[in-house]
Simulated scan of single mutants.
Amino acid sequence: MKELLRTNDPTVIAFASAMLAGEGISVFPMDVHMSTLEGSIGILPRRLMVASDDHARALRILRDNGIDVEET
């Protein structure tokens, strides 16, 4: 698995997940429950992971739809 996206904005994670699922790419959100450790103030980013084979295609899909993604 490779990291595709890291953000503090849960709406970006939801949008990206739905978009990639629509394209047949399985995603795995990480750090979703970290808010219990941080006190629900949103300082710890959430990550979206995809299979290594799908990473390049997923990057293109997100960029084509206006989501700024840094290559890791």
Score class of each variant (00 low, 15 high):
G39F: 00
R63D: 04
A18P: 10
D53H: 13
R47D: 12
T36R: 08
I41G: 06
S26I: 10
A16S: 12
R46F: 01
L62K: 02
A51C: 07
G24C: 01
P45F: 02
T11M: 15
R46V: 08
D64N: 14
G42W: 06
H33F: 07
I13C: 04
G24P: 00
R47M: 13
P10Y: 01
D9M: 09
A51W: 04
S26Y: 09
G39V: 04
E38A: 12
M49P: 01
H33I: 11
A51I: 07
G42N: 06
V50H: 04
A56P: 06
M30I: 02
A58F: 00
I13E: 05
I61D: 01
D31S: 12
P29K: 02
A51Y: 04
S40F: 14
S40A: 14
M30C: 03
M49N: 03
A58C: 06
F28E: 07
P10Q: 08
F28S: 10
I41W: 08
L59F: 09
L59S: 12
S17A: 11
F28W: 06
D68H: 08
V27M: 02
D68F: 10
P29E: 05
A21F: 12
L20C: 15
A21H: 13
I61T: 02
L59N: 13
S52K: 10
V32I: 11
V12R: 14
N65C: 10
M19K: 06
L48P: 00
D68I: 08
S40W: 12
I67V: 15
M34F: 08
V27K: 00
M49T: 03
T36C: 03
S26A: 14
P45D: 12
R63C: 05
V12Q: 13
I41N: 13
S17M: 08
N8E: 08
R63I: 03
